[in-house]
Design a protein around this nucleic acid. Structure first.
Length: 510
RNA sequence: GCCGCAUUCGUCUAGUCGGCCUAGGACGCCAGGUUUUCAUCCUGGAAAUCAGGGGUUCGAAUCCCCUAUGCGGUACCA
């Protein structure tokens, strides 16, 4: 079996835009598979379509994997013995292999223009039929099979544009052995003579992919299900070249959270969750698509979330580190049907990861947010703040929302709370409470708490009212960690100032 | 249209060779508790007649067939 061999797998995106999470998951599965077996993980850029090239897309892809901590052993940027790893730089290679197919009668030149083909398709459609360029129609088209040999040569010599098409053998049962789906069979009569080499001198995906996978000694092709229909063509291509085909594994699709369609670029911002690892700004339209990183997700959480969309370890464990994933991953536990992305569960995962993240890492992120707001605190202070509020944050971006009051006085007060709790005697109560807190020297949060509670009881005040008003003064809302922890953090003097500010603002008659 | 793939709680899924499934877990939801706040956390609950219909079998979510539905593909895009 091939399991004794070190596998070589690749992730092969085309730089036509930002990489979406379906692609990230495909890459992740390839990565896990390679790492588990001590194999090689390769990044190959498939940029054979010059018309769809988007500047910055390649950099985006690389930066995404850097952020996620997924590393490549070979490929674009990292190099290796099988380069170049960008298909546009391998152009002459494909020409030569296309020629080989022509010479062995597995392919032929075709001179039909796109316009002619369009027309043909329209004619067929008018009769409710489907035009297919295949063994039943190719002799009625303009190609080296239908034209006299001299005519073909004349056209070639005169520089007339041509494509090279695969000559599918008639009535042949083609078997694709898929690691996830089992045996998939299809009759060759149903397949069309796919273009392998375009008139612009570039190969199509099909040719380039097979040639590169072979030359790069890829052992396992792990890719999205959308490729399953063209897998028969690919196995035929391997046969035509006389090469051994790699093993195939077609992954189920990632579906949009609502409806059943394939997850697409638009869905994310429509439904309020990122579809991309990193934020992407369309260079042409300046349209912004949000990214996991900018939304405050932790890379390990994103990996965990993606790993479980279409795969599971077979146990009830759901929180899985990348090392655990490498250990546990297996292709035969991949499910066959598409998985919908669930933003709520993603949020839960990220919360879990924030809880187990080292304080120092979170503090670094929070410190950035603080600095952006012009607040400069010592790293010790920031770490203390993080420890206090982390259990209520789901996203890195929430640290400010959950802890601004540790660094500045509230700018406004939650009117609902004001309405419910703030009474006429509140200022008086708060000043008395403050006096008690100030009298605890040196400050001790337990003692302060106990004495305040005792005073409230002694005066027969309403505990909820007093406490909530104190909180309202300090935080501006009915939220946040233990009140005396906050007081301990910001200091009695600051509390004093905030209470006076609250009284000033909430009691206009004073 | 044609070809292919799929189909277990709302969602992600467990269910490997049919019996231990009166279908398990997680997210979400609901209820209670903790927190005199919010979030967290804890406990409990509702939630899938296993797409539908036929077989095979003593016995099927698990095997076979049919139907339906969904998705994917059907480009000189990947």
């Amino acid at each position: 079996m091939t399991t004794t061999l070190k596998p070589r797998v690749r992730f092969a995106p085309s730089p036509t835009g930002p990489l979406h999470i379906g692609g990230v998951r495909t890459a992740l599965y390839n990565y896990l598979f390679a790492k588990q077996h001590g194999g090689t993980f390769i990044l190959r850029i498939e940029d054979t379509d010059q018309t769809r090239f988007v500047p910055g897309a390649e950099e985006y892809i690389i930066e995404s994997f850097e952020w996620l901590g997924i590393t490549f052993d070979e490929g674009v940027r990292v190099g290796g013995d099988f380069g170049p790893y960008k298909q546009s730089e391998r152009k002459p290679l494909y020409q030569q292999f296309a020629q080989q197919l022509i010479d062995s009668d597995w392919a032929y030149y075709a001179f039909d223009t796109p316009e002619q083909l369009d027309e043909k398709r329209k004619d067929y459609e008018a009769e409710k039929k489907n035009f297919q360029y295949d063994n039943s129609t190719r002799l009625s088209m303009t190609n080296s099979l239908s034209l006299p040999k001299e005519e073909t040569e004349r056209r070639l010599a005169s520089g007339q544009p041509f494509v090279i098409r695969f000559k599918f053998p008639a009535d042949k049962e083609i078997l694709v052995n898929d690691l996830i789906r089992g045996e998939v069979r299809i009759n060759s009569n149903l397949l069309d003579d796919k273009v392998l080499f375009k008139s612009d001198g570039m190969p199509t995906y099909h040719l380039a992919n097979i040639v590169d996978d072979h030359l790069m000694e890829i052992t396992h092709v792990i890719r999205g299900e959308e490729w399953l229909p063209s897998a028969p063509l690919h196995v035929m291509l391997y046969q035509a070249f006389g090469w051994d085909a790699p093993s195939f594994a077609h992954l189920p699709l990632l579906l949009k959270p609502d409806g059943n369609g394939k997850l697409s670029k638009r869905d994310g911002d429509r439904l309020g969750f990122p579809v991309f690892p990193l934020q992407w700004i369309n260079p042409e339209t300046q349209e912004i698509s949000s990214g996991y990183r900018e939304m405050g997700y932790l890379p390990d959480a994103v990996i965990n979330i993606l790993s479980l969309l279409g795969w599971n370890p077979g146990t009830e464990q759901e929180i899985l580190s990348i090392d655990e994933l490498v250990k546990l991953f297996s292709l035969d536990k991949i499910s066959k049907s598409g998985a919908k992305f669930d933003p709520e569960k993603a949020k839960w995962f990220n919360h879990q990861y924030i809880q187990k993240q080292p304080i120092a890492n979170l503090a670094k992120s929070f410190d950035h947010q603080l600095k952006a707001k012009g607040i400069h605190a010592s790293i010790e202070q920031v770490e203390r703040a993080v420890a206090m509020i982390r259990e209520r944050v789901h996203f890195l971006t929430e640290f400010w929302d959950q802890g601004y009051f540790l660094f500045e006085a509230p700018k406004e007060y939650d009117q609902q709370v004001v309405k419910k709790r703030w009474k006429e005697n509140t200022p008086d109560q708060l000043r008395q409470v403050l006096a008690i807190i100030s009298s605890v020297q040196p400050f001790n949060k337990e003692t302060a708490h106990d004495e305040v509670v005792a005073a409230i009881q002694r005066n027969e005040w309403n505990m909820g009212q007093v406490m909530n008003c104190l909180r309202l003064s300090i935080v501006g809302a009915a939220k946040g960690p233990d009140l005396f922890d906050i007081i301990d953090f910001i200091g009695v003097e600051e509390v004093n100032a905030r209470v006076e500010q609250a009284i000033d603002r909430l009691c206009p008659e004073n």
